[in-house]
């Protein structure tokens, strides 16, 4: 398990719809802000990079102070699953993304969920954290 990891889902409109600190390191409010700042800044790079490749998993597209940003871009709604991590476990990250993507699709299938709005399901949250423990 990585010591630091911050996972976010960013909608097509660049609005974060889900965020979770999934690192093993003790939570610090200040750090969480910093993680979000890094992820927010990385959107600029994703925005360009996503159109240059057909791959959904873009690993290590950005880094700051030993923290690496990996992104998984979904095909349909251009939703971005972004992970800020310090480990180099690429395979684990990829699997994590794939599983979370599946979860996300299940959320999308919920007729009561408006695409682009915040994911508030606690079930989703629990599952994501479980996946993070498993893969990261």
């Amino acid at each position: 398990m990585a010591s630091t990891a911050c996972f976010m889902i960013v909608s097509k409109n660049d609005i974060p719809i889900y965020e979770a600190e999934v690192g093993a390191a003790p939570r610090k409010e200040e750090a969480a802000h910093q993680h979000q700042f890094i992820l927010h800044a990385a959107l600029d790079i994703v925005q360009d990079l996503a159109w240059t490749t057909s791959a959904m998993f873009l690993k290590g597209i950005d880094r700051f102070n030993d923290l690496v940003v990996s992104v998984y871009v979904t095909a349909g709604l251009h939703t971005r699953l972004m992970l800020l991590h310090d480990s180099r476990n690429d395979d684990g990250i990829k699997s994590f993304f794939q599983e979370v993507h599946e979860l996300y699709i299940k959320t999308l299938l919920n007729p009561l969920y408006l695409p682009g709005s915040r994911i508030t399901s606690s079930h989703f949250d629990t599952k994501v954290r479980a996946l993070a423990r498993k893969y990261l």
């Binding site: 409109n13 660049d14 609005i15 974060p16 965020e19 979000q36």
Partner: peptide, 8 residues
């Protein structure tokens, strides 16, 4: 309401 990164 784009980029409602309220924390940031």
């Amino acid at each position: 309401f784009e980029s409602q990164w309220s924390t940031l």
